[in-house]
Amino acid sequence: MHPVDLSLDTRTEGEHTVVAVGGEIDVYTAPRLREALIDLVDAGTYHIVVDVEKVEFLDSTGLGVLVGGLKRVRAHNGSLQVVCTQERLLKIFRITGLTKVFSIHDSVSDAVAVR
């Protein structure tokens, strides 16, 4: 049984690549998101927006993947921004102090307006 419950949908909006994530980002599924972000950076994509509006669960492993992605794009003077309005997820960013690390936006349009 492989209860993989994670969806990844990647699209381009102007200079940004938007990764819309759905389902659960946990210790089991997070490696798929990590691989997707690594693939994007390896392909020369350095301005990434991760949209977690359809994420039902996020744990510290998922946060670690986002932090890893941020480090990778910053190495190329890029950006990784997060779209999130769900209070239960924002609470996790706050507890871990990551609200000071990530730019968190209410919408994809807000995120892609930033450079």
Binding site: V27, D59, S60, T61, L63, G64, V67, I92, I95, T96, G97
Partner: peptide, 9 residues
């Protein structure tokens, strides 16, 4: 293997 922040969470 994971963020040490897990304990803080």
């Amino acid at each position: 293997s994971a963020l040490p922040e897990a304990i803080g969470l």
